Simulated assay, not measured.
Amino acid sequence: MAVGWVKVVGVGPGSPEYLTKIGERVIGEADYVAGAEELLKTFAPDKKHLSFGEFGAVLKQIKDLSRSFNIALLLRGDTGFYSLLRKIERENPGLVTEVIPGISSVQLAFARLKKLWDGAAFYSLHGRALPEKLKDEFTVHVFLLGEKIDTSSLKQLLQKHGLEGASYYLLYDLSYPEEKIIKLSFADLPPELSGRGILIAER
């Protein structure tokens, strides 16, 4: 009996234009494609789908099917940067055969701003609480947004670290037609931050 594989494919910020050639090839070679429904419709409309619902159940399904079939597991952005790869490997060690990295929204954000990001500190607020403190040795702070971020608490944290005078950039829906990039001041930060966005504070 043939033994299949499970390959994690980073599909970039969301637009098919940012899918790598090798990622496209792996998706084409897969018998099944797993991932969020939006990604399945965008990147593998003609494949057999394993849509993320109850994540543990989907992982078990992937594990069972991989005994005979090839499965591409799609993750948005960079597979090694705040991704589900950590949870997959923790719950099913050895399941993943290969990881195909993609372009992260962070890479695209700094490219859009024409700035370097090798001196930036990163904080994910996607399903996570605000950090207790920021890394003061960095001059650029990058916040990956999630659902309904409390701007009041975030501003208190920024004030605590002397970032009232920083330049702020709010980037939403990168790579999508509705992409929006706004430069603003500390005082102009909106009362609520949410969605597929990134907030960058540059001292």
Rank of each mutant, 00 (worst) to 15 (best):
L189F: 05
V140T: 15
S194C: 08
Y172C: 05
E147A: 11
E29Q: 13
V9C: 08
E54K: 15
S194I: 05
I71P: 00
V140L: 12
S175E: 13
F143K: 06
I200A: 07
V106S: 13
Y123E: 03
R112Y: 02
L59D: 01
G102E: 10
L163N: 10
T97S: 15
Q159Y: 10
Y123P: 09
L73V: 06
L145S: 10
G197R: 08
L73K: 03
D46K: 15
F52P: 08
V58M: 14
Y168M: 15
E202V: 03
E178D: 14
K87P: 00
V33N: 01
S104R: 07
L199P: 00
D64I: 11
I27C: 14
K155M: 15
T42G: 05
W5N: 04
I198A: 06
R67V: 12
K155I: 10
D64G: 07
M1H: 14
V99K: 05
I88G: 00
E24V: 00
G102D: 06
K47H: 05
K155H: 09
H141F: 10
Y32C: 00
T151I: 04
Q61W: 03
Y169E: 02
T139C: 11
S104P: 08
F186I: 10
K41P: 00
Q156R: 15
L163D: 07
G53N: 14
S104G: 15
F143L: 05
S175W: 14
Y123N: 01
Y169G: 03
L74Q: 02
L144F: 14
L50V: 09
I100A: 06
D136S: 12
S167F: 08
S194H: 12
F52N: 08
G10Q: 09
P45F: 07
R25D: 07
A57T: 09
R86A: 09
R196N: 12
F69V: 03
L130D: 09
P190N: 03
G56R: 10
G56S: 13
K60H: 13
L85G: 04
I181K: 10
A34Y: 05
S83D: 11
Y172R: 15
F69I: 03
G102N: 11
H49V: 04
L40T: 04
L144I: 14
I88D: 01
D78E: 03
F122D: 01
